[in-house]
Design a protein around this nucleic acid. Structure first.
Lengths: 349, 349
DNA sequence: TTGTATGCGTTATCAT
DNA sequence: ATGATAACGCATACAA
């Protein structure tokens, strides 16, 4: 491999001068600079990061550690957000996944340490509570889409499920719906409770009572092998005489089954039932006809902001508190319409 | 940071002996080995990869370079396959994505080279033809889910779309279907032609003629912003008097719209129409009711085998030819039933 | 403006 | 079986 010395020889200068050119330091004549640059090109020289790191003790590398439950493919946008930020800021990304094994997780932390990683982004594919098994290594870390039980040891950045569900509920309410169904997400997901809670509170603020609501469990059981009650629950819900005029789905995927249930009963969407989802999993939201109104999980932003935050942390900034939340944007498409009685309140927030 | 020398001092041996222990080399007494290991634990020593690389010139690192069109979230399983293999074999993974920019791609190759990466896995999220913009760097490379136009310069490993579509077609044929519809994938995807081709040939082998087939374009246009004709095409197809008794969908996502179209026309699945997909994108295949029979794209295997192959390549093996293909497994669920006239041939392959 | 010497943490070589 | 020492490619301090 061609090193800095060979370049120096070829250009007829010392290695230090080559170093200066590479790092854009001052005090190099334009002429020598050009000679060195030519030598670099001619020899195809590329600096050796490892050698650089060994001196400067700064790897300019972030590690990503994920659990990769293969069933949530869409949250890879988190990783994309991280990578884009890294790319724009000259950082390198090392990636590893635990596959759920905590032994492997310990190994990964060790591996990261042996690469002298500057910081770690700990990301989960589902929003959940976790306690990183760092072994005894300590590296600046930001948690993305998750947080610790023992609160705020590590900074975390998460989507605002509550706000997203609240906006969605208001959206329905403002369109005059007064009987609303809700099909619940798997309770083991952190978002489940938050979303349901937002639904309950918001409907109640608008004066709806428990009897105006129709709430069913859509799924439960372990992630990746859950029991699926969505179709049955939706069918049940929509068969009632005083059926809801709108249904909120725990997420977009579950909305597929609600669509099918509604259609099987001869109901039109959105004329007879309005349906809204959650996540903005575009593969689903765009495939459904009519396209699904939903709240977008800010995955990309989570990744990008997380990387930025980690960088600040590494830089020694301590300004931030322990936990941050990013809002979910309501994406209006055409699966929800005005309810049977026209809006009794103002129509837009 | 604690180095090999401090460990050596603590254990009262030379640095070389510590090195021997770390690397599991022979010629160390059990006793000294234990003493060294204790020192390592006590001091929390972790080897510095950068320093190791600088001597041995082996980074034990693979780079993954992807285009990350955010619309195909499921092919991340390729990356998972790579990572799992890497994890099991002590390799580290560096990851970067081009975002479609070829300038960035050149930078990435440079970056990889400066990290003295052992090999590169070039993966695309859609199966397609690409020519890697390596600049002038040359590192052992395996292409995954794609291949070059200028054929076989680089080894490649791809899913067998043809075989998958052939199996699916046979499956329908063997169940007695003699009028079959096909809704085509976006023609710019490499799989599109292959799948359609398999469909055409296989039906023809079974004696069907062009008039028994009903073929429509489902989508076209650029990836991520395509025109979507699926719903309309399916509706059109199923409204005919001599409508097909089975429809093959270009992929699973498109099947959602076919389901909805069928149900809107009051058709039951699979009693009135059988439907099969392609990809086994589980978010969709499991959400659809009845669950979708499909052919599984072997993403995980693609990644794992690709990594293994790359490793062989790096090890100097030249045994393999330029291109490999991995078969797509038919996943039988409940969206396809026997056609109107019972099977005229044997019922299982 | 440029060069020399030294050190980083590891492995390799050659002794012992 | 173990150790002393060089060497890897680069940056840093300091000298010229």
């Amino acid at each position: 491999m061609v090193s800095i010395v060979s370049v120096a020889k070829a250009a007829g200068v010392s290695n230090k001068t080559v170093s200066r050119v590479i790092n854009g330091e001052p005090y190099v004549t334009e002429e020598t600079r050009e000679r060195v640059e030519k030598a670099i090109r001619d020899l195809g020289y590329v600096p050796n990061m490892a050698a650089r790191l060994i001196r400067s003790n700064r790897s300019n590398t972030f590690g990503i550690i994920t659990d990769y439950v293969s069933t949530t493919p869409y949250s890879v946008d988190i990783v994309r957000g991280i990578q884009d930020w890294a790319n724009a800021n000259g950082k390198t990304i090392l990636i590893a996944n635990t596959g759920g094994s905590s032994e492997r997780e310990v190994e990964i932390w060790k591996m990261f340490q042996s690469h002298r990683i500057d910081g770690v982004l700990y990301v989960t594919m589902y929003r959940r509570i976790v306690d990183p098994e760092t072994g005894d290594v300590s590296i600046p870390t930001v948690m993305i889409n998750c947080r610790q039980q023992t609160r705020e040891l590590l900074p975390s950045i998460e989507p605002d499920d509550y706000q997203g569900a609240r906006d969605l509920t208001r959206y329905l309410l403002e369109r005059g719906h007064r009987r609303i169904g809700y099909i619940r997400l798997n309770p083991i997901l952190l978002g489940a409770e938050l979303r349901l809670d937002a639904f309950r509170r918001t409907t109640s603020e608008f004066g709806l009572t428990e009897s105006d609501l129709s709430i069913s469990l859509g799924m439960d059981g372990p992630v990746g092998a859950e029991n699926n009650y969505v179709f049955a629950a939706a069918t049940e819900m929509l068969k009632q005489d005083d059926r809801p005029t709108a249904i909120m789905s725990g997420n977009d995927e579950m909305a597929i089954q609600i669509y099918i249930a509604a259609m099987a009963l001869g109901l039109r969407i959105p004329q007879d039932v309005s349906i809204v989802g959650f996540d903005d999993f575009r593969t689903v939201t765009m495939a459904l006809k009519p396209e699904l109104t939903t709240a977008a999980l800010p995955y990309y932003d989570l990744g990008r902001d997380g990387a930025k935050w980690l960088n600040d942390l590494i830089g020694g900034e301590k300004i931030y508190p322990g936990s941050r939340v990013i809002s979910c944007k309501l994406v209006e498409r055409s699966s929800a319409a005005f309810g049977p009685r026209q809006a009794s309140r103002s129509s837009t927030a």
